[in-house]
């Protein structure tokens, strides 16, 4: 589910943006380190493959068809960190070239589908990928991947104050389960054919225990977000009020967020403009700094 711009609360945009920027920076680092020097050629071409693969339709009967999403396929064939980088690049190109997902919302979409979706989708494979349960792990992984990223997207929308009626929620959940299972079957069809054609491709990446941990973290994150979102529809507002931090938050945290409420009186226009610009600068600065900090710590 590619969330477009305009749906997410600035606080959600900031949080998901910072989180996914850090994750992708770490993934990019580890993907580059673990591989040959011009590996980005391979990753880019495999990203293009996922795009192209979406042109091959799988018939579902009744004149409908579906196509591959590719997250778990990438993780199984390339490894977790490279798959995260490739998926991020795919989401980036989709947002820019095809207006599929927003540009500001890219942080959220990358977190949902590029980071958590892939980590969760890789979890069963990291646990059982080498045994008899391998194919089951692939299908389960795809289901988990689609559910995780879908649940996170829904939670982000609800947190942003987009009310979703229960009926629609169930419809969405059903659609997610269906498309997750479908993705599993598609991925399975491709992997099995690939095993015949080019056995080395499937065994190229070896999962390890850290991947299990990351996958569990991703699932926990999704569950936690859904939990928080289900507590209150306008949870951001109520949280701020309950903690009594809203006053200070206005001054300290993020100007765009603080301005979000209509209730407080506008001051002069130039101070508002300054606050707005400061908010933008802050958003950007926090992202860059956090990314640098994480990268330095991980690489040091």
């Amino acid at each position: 589910m590619h969330i477009p711009d305009g749906f997410l609360h600035p606080a959600v945009l900031t949080a998901t943006g910072v989180l996914s920027a850090s994750c992708v920076a770490v993934a990019a680092r580890s993907a580059r380190r673990g591989l040959e020097e011009s590996r980005f050629a391979l990753l880019g071409v495999m990203g293009a493959f996922v795009f192209a693969a979406q042109m091959v339709n799988f018939p579902l009967g009744l004149g409908t068809s579906s196509h591959l999403l590719g997250g778990v396929l990438l993780a199984v064939t390339l490894g977790l960190a490279p798959a995260v980088v490739v998926m991020t690049a795919i989401l980036l190109v989709q947002a820019l070239l095809f207006q599929d997902g927003g540009v500001l919302a890219l942080g959220a979409n990358v977190l949902n589908m590029g980071v958590a979706g892939i980590a969760a989708g890789y979890l069963p494979y990291a646990m059982w990928g080498r045994g008899r349960l391998r194919w089951f792990a692939v299908v389960l992984g795809c289901l988990l991947s689609v559910l995780t990223s879908g649940a996170m997207a829904i939670a982000e929308l609800i947190l942003s104050g987009v009310r979703i009626p229960v009926a629609l929620l169930w419809t969405t959940a059903a659609l997610l389960v269906a498309s997750g299972l479908l993705e599993g079957l598609l991925t399975l069809a491709v992997l099995r054919a690939l095993l015949v054609l080019r056995p080395g491709a499937v065994e190229a990446a070896y999962p390890h225990r850290g991947h299990v941990l990351l996958g569990m973290l991703a699932v926990l994150l999704a569950v936690g977000m859904v939990g928080v979102a289900s507590e209150a529809p306008d949870v951001l507002e109520s949280l701020a009020q309950r903690a009594g931090i809203s006053e200070r938050a206005r001054a300290l945290v993020a100007a765009p967020l603080a301005e979000y409420r209509l209730s407080w009186a506008p001051s002069s226009w130039w101070s508002q403009a300054a606050a707005g610009l400061a908010g933008v600068a802050l958003l950007y600065g926090v992202g860059v700094l956090l990314r640098r900090a994480v990268v330095r710590r991980r690489s040091g």
Partner: peptide
């Protein structure tokens, strides 16, 4: 990676 993705 995105460059190569776009190129191919």
């Amino acid at each position: 990676v995105a460059h190569f993705l776009y190129r191919y």
